[in-house]
Measured scan of single mutants.
Amino acid sequence: MSIQHFRVALIPFFAAFCLPVFAHPETLVKVKDAEDQLGARVGYIELDLNSGKILESFRPEERFPMMSTFKVLLCGAVLSRVDAGQEQLGRRIHYSQNDLVEYSPVTEKHLTDGMTVRELCSAAITMSDNTAANLLLTTIGGPKELTAFLHNMGDHVTRLDRWEPELNEAIPNDERDTTMPAAMATTLRKLLTGELLTLASRQQLIDWMEADKVAGPLLRSALPAGWFIADKSGAGERGSRGIIAALGPDGKPSRIVVIYTTGSQATMDERNRQIAEIGASLIKHW
């Protein structure tokens, strides 16, 4: 067993022997301040990774656009098919120029040779490549099948209805392509620590998230040296922004954090800054 596999296998073990965790309302004060600064709703939840206990939450059962955070769930569904012998990570998928959609920095470079399922998941999570996500959605049967996968996990809230990039439209009061912070946090925890996926697939999923290259201005910008984070960000229309993450000190994750916002007129930089400040408060009061 590799060191990384050992780390993920012992996530519940280490967490069980940690000192009790206590909620700190100071972080919620910052979440509410972010709402004021952005002029928009902000949803927040913080779960203990081992027990699933909610440590703090704000608007945990209000719907927010998922945006690209759905790509972690998508690759979880792909990995479940791999575990069941219905898919192979090494299978190569070929596609054409007509398949390319807006923001496809990886797939646009491989029109000639195609990409493997493993490479597509890596591109979808680490670079948020939209064509990679659409190609992977095709392998599982489309958005409705991802929703069905989530329902089978016990998540009857999260739903995907459309493809990239239309799913980022974020129309107010439109339930399409949305989740709730509580539902997303619980589902992410199941994917990373539950028995739904094999140990190898859980490790692969967290490795992809740990290698995320496009979430630097968010929670990662607030992390002290030595902290662990595996995350996936999302951005959408109407001032929408979000991030889902597993993080913790001492090089291992111990909490799940989900943050979503929508309806702001603020710039992307300002949305990023507010999420980073929430992260800084979380870490300060850990």
Score class of each variant (00 low, 15 high):
4 Q>V: 08
5 H>A: 08
8 V>D: 11
8 V>S: 15
9 A>N: 09
9 A>T: 15
9 A>V: 09
13 F>W: 11
14 F>D: 00
16 A>T: 11
21 V>K: 06
25 P>M: 10
26 E>V: 10
28 L>T: 09
29 V>D: 14
34 A>D: 02
35 E>Q: 08
36 D>F: 15
38 L>A: 07
41 R>S: 09
41 R>I: 09
46 E>Q: 12
48 D>W: 03
57 S>Q: 12
60 P>L: 10
61 E>Q: 14
63 R>A: 07
64 F>S: 01
68 S>N: 00
69 T>Y: 03
70 F>M: 14
73 L>Q: 05
74 L>K: 01
78 V>L: 07
83 D>S: 06
86 Q>F: 10
91 R>F: 06
95 Y>Q: 02
97 Q>F: 15
100 L>E: 04
102 E>N: 10
103 Y>K: 02
106 V>P: 01
108 E>A: 09
109 K>S: 14
109 K>N: 12
110 H>R: 10
117 V>P: 04
120 L>K: 00
123 A>P: 00
124 A>K: 00
124 A>F: 00
126 T>C: 11
127 M>R: 09
130 N>Y: 05
132 A>P: 00
134 N>Q: 05
137 L>H: 03
137 L>G: 04
138 T>K: 15
140 I>Y: 09
141 G>K: 07
142 G>Y: 02
144 K>D: 15
145 E>S: 12
145 E>R: 13
148 A>H: 13
158 T>R: 00
158 T>C: 03
160 L>A: 11
164 E>H: 01
166 E>A: 11
168 N>G: 11
169 E>Y: 11
169 E>D: 13
170 A>K: 06
171 I>L: 15
171 I>H: 15
173 N>A: 14
173 N>C: 14
173 N>H: 12
173 N>G: 14
176 R>T: 07
180 M>F: 11
181 P>M: 02
181 P>K: 00
182 A>R: 14
188 L>Y: 08
189 R>C: 12
193 T>V: 15
195 E>Y: 07
198 T>N: 13
200 A>V: 11
200 A>E: 14
201 S>C: 07
201 S>I: 03
204 Q>S: 12
205 L>R: 00
205 L>G: 00
206 I>K: 12
211 A>Y: 08
214 V>F: 05
216 G>S: 09
217 P>D: 12
217 P>F: 07
219 L>R: 03
219 L>Q: 04
220 R>N: 03
220 R>W: 02
221 S>P: 09
227 W>S: 02
228 F>D: 03
228 F>P: 01
230 A>K: 01
235 A>F: 02
241 R>E: 03
242 G>M: 02
243 I>D: 02
245 A>E: 00
247 L>S: 02
251 G>K: 14
253 P>H: 10
253 P>E: 06
254 S>Y: 10
258 V>R: 00
260 Y>V: 07
260 Y>T: 04
261 T>N: 03
261 T>M: 15
262 T>V: 08
263 G>E: 06
264 S>D: 04
264 S>T: 12
265 Q>Y: 12
266 A>G: 13
268 M>D: 06
269 D>G: 13
276 A>F: 12
281 S>V: 15
286 W>E: 02
